[in-house]
Structures are given as structure tokens and as C-alpha cells.
Design a protein around this nucleic acid. Structure first.
Lengths: 189, 189
DNA sequence: ATGAACATGTAAATGGTTACATGATTCG
DNA sequence: CGAATCATGTAACCATTTACATGTTCAT
């Protein structure tokens, strides 16, 4: 039941179209939640029916028309009540962890391939988040921005995303190192 | 489609009952995957029907009887083929991230409560993982264990779990600090 | 002209959570 | 005697993914 709140949170700072919200939740840029376009459009429809967001048609000349959504007072109240209840912690749920769990029974080369792929993905995503952070800070230093910047919520969640991918990257690197070292050790005996 | 592989991976090193597998995937100890008992029992039934695991009845005296499962040759082949395909990376999906994303529009005290709760949870879970790691290492140092230990797969995934919760803990601590500092700054003006 | 980006969905299938059920034994 | 642990499920519901669908404009 958190996608609805994620959509509301995404619309807090600016009016966005469904399409723009899908961009925010897309694979490459999901800084605080991830969802597919179909989910976003469905959720926006539900939220509008319940009066938590309000949409207005915007006619465009050189593009398909679109609908821009903003959060209503009721929507903000819904978010407040969501935040007042305890958040349930989530768990790591990665295919790669399952594959590494079975490492001692699987082919090392195959696993190293998987880890190397994930390493590259994590590195790229961390760099993307880092760029977004720089854009949000602008000229200011981080400490200055965090203390006096207008909106720090998105900055804090983006930082978590960056650090998560950095940790994934480092873990992949270390795991590859371990697997290689063990192969060497086996070859020497 | 990864729960089935997580169950297979859990059964690789030893025969376990459904109940023991549910323990491994329970909230407090999910080192590489998380699932509820209902899911585990259902998955084991499916895996057995497909011949990927084999169960045997164990009669017990002072306890309910149980069924112990082991991975069959077909099950191992299934895992091999799972590992040979690219793993799809997962995303952070935490209620708390949604709440912090909206931080600039919500009550600071409420958010600090949420972050403090999550901090404590993360700290406890990181400590639990750390203990598991120590138990796996035994007398050996980490480098020695990683190079010559019998099974490093579970160790590596557990380390990822520990580092994930440490990162959650640190992020919560930093976010609280930022929110408090901004409140002070507002009060001073 | 081909593909990417804009813009918005429907329908079916899979995966995960919540609620409910049962019954024995051990520990405090 | 009440709570925790052992042991195993069913059923209903909600959330997410996959597959399919449509039409426009802009850049190469």
C-alpha cells in the first residue's frame, strides 16, 4: 500500500504528468521508489477518484496533450497519516544474493560473470545518483545545502540510493576477489 | 520466480525441514532472502512435485513428526541454469524512504520518531548478522576463512546483509541529524 | 523510413501479505 | 497455567510484472 504514498510524495514539489512520474520511478532513476508505467497510471486514476490528487488537462501543440497532477489537501493529510504510522522495514531481495548463497555448489566462472555485470550496473547507477545530488546542491557545499536548502527530502533519499549502489558495487568487487583467490588456492594444491 | 531458487539454495548444505527453512527466511534472520512460512511450505510442495527436492518423513518422539528435504540432481541443475542467466537487480523499496522524500512537507518530530525506530531495528539486525558471521568463521580470521573455509557463499551473503543494515543505521542517524539541525536553524531566525 | 521520446492505458499472470486454522510439547 | 517453540498448512487479498495496445512528433 505504499505506491500510492510514493506517487503523492513525488507530486509534492511540483505538478507532474503521469508520464513524468513514470520517469521518476523508472529503472535508471528510481531514487526512493520503483514502479512501472502501468502501475503509475492506475494509481493516479485511483488517487484522483478518491480526491487525493487533482488533474488538469494541458493542451500542447507539438506533442500529445497531457494531464498534470497536484496533491490536494486531502492527499497531504493522507501522507501525514502514513508518516505517523511505523514504517515496516524491507529486506534485501536480490537474485544475485541467491546465486552467491549457492556459490560453493556452482561454477565459479559463471558467478564471476554475474558479479561483474552487477558491479558495472551498480557503478553506473551510483554515478547517476551522484550527478543528481550535485544538481540539487547547485553551487552550495553539502553541509550548507542540508542546513539551508529548500527541500532536503529528495536529497536524503537520493543519498541513500547512491550509498546502496556503492555498497552493492563494493560487495561485488570483494566477492569476485574471494572467488578468484579460492580458485588460485585450489589450483596450487 | 526466485523464491524457488532461494529455497533450493537454503537446502544445499544440509537437509532441513520446512519449519527450519521458514526460520532461515524469517524477519530476524533473513540473510539472503525473506519469505513467510506459508510461502515456504507451498514452494516446497511444488518443488517436491517437480522432483527438484526430495522429502523424507522423520518420526520424532517428544515433538511433532517432520519432513526433511534435500536437493536432487535435477534441483541442482535448475540452480545452475538460474545462475547462468543474468540476475535482475532489485531496488530499494522502503516505506521510510517515501516518508523522508516528503520530509519538507511533514512534521519533523514524527519523522524523527520513524528514523529512530528504524535506526534501532537496523542496529539490532546488523549485530545479529555480525554474530552469525563470527559463528561461521569460528576460530579463524576472516581472510583465512574466506580463502580456505568450506562454504563461503552463506558468509558472503550474510556480510551483504550486515553491511546493508549498517548503511540503513548510518543513514537514519545522519537524516535525524540533518532534520534536527534545520529545526535549530529555523528557531534561530 | 526508422527509432526514440512523448503520452496513456488494458488484461493476464505471478508473487507476496494478511487472516485464519490446528495441535503437540517445553519452559518459566 | 500461559507463552514460546515445533510443525504444517488453506484462503483471500493486494502488489508487481509481463504482454499487449495505440497514436504523435522529432531527430538521424
Amino acid at each position: 500500500m505504499a505506491l500510492r504514498h510514493a506517487v503523492l510524495a513525488a507530486l509534492l514539489d511540483e505538478e507532474l504528468s503521469g508520464y513524468q512520474v513514470t520517469k521518476a520511478f523508472a529503472a535508471g532513476v528510481a531514487n526512493f521508489w520503483h514502479a512501472l508505467p502501468q502501475q503509475v497510471y492506475a494509481e493516479l486514476a485511483r488517487l484522483e477518484k478518491e480526491g487525493l490528487v487533482a488533474g488538469r488537462e494541458v493542451v500542447q501543440v507539438a506533442r500529445p496533450n497531457k494531464r498534470l497532477f497536484r496533491v490536494t489537501g486531502e492527499g497531504l493529510a493522507e501522507l501525514e497519516s502514513f508518516a505517523s504510522a511505523a514504517a515496516k522495514p524491507s529486506f534485501l531481495r536480490e537474485d544475485l544474493l541467491v546465486q552467491v548463497q549457492a556459490a560453493d555448489h556452482l561454477d565459479t566462472d559463471v558467478l564471476i560473470d554475474r558479479l561483474t555485470e552487477r558491479y558495472a550496473f551498480a557503478e553506473a547507477k551510483a554515478a547517476l545518483f551522484e550527478e543528481q545530488l550535485r544538481a540539487m546542491r547547485g553551487e552550495r557545499g553539502e553541509a550548507e545545502f542540508l542546513l539551508h536548502g529548500a527541500r532536503v527530502g529528495p536529497y536524503l533519499t537520493c543519498r541513500r540510493g547512491r550509498d546502496f549502489e556503492r555498497a552493492n558495487r563494493d560487495w561485488c568487487r570483494d566477492a569476485v576477489e574471494v572467488l578468484r583467490a579460492r580458485r588460485e588456492a585450489r589450483a596450487d594444491s
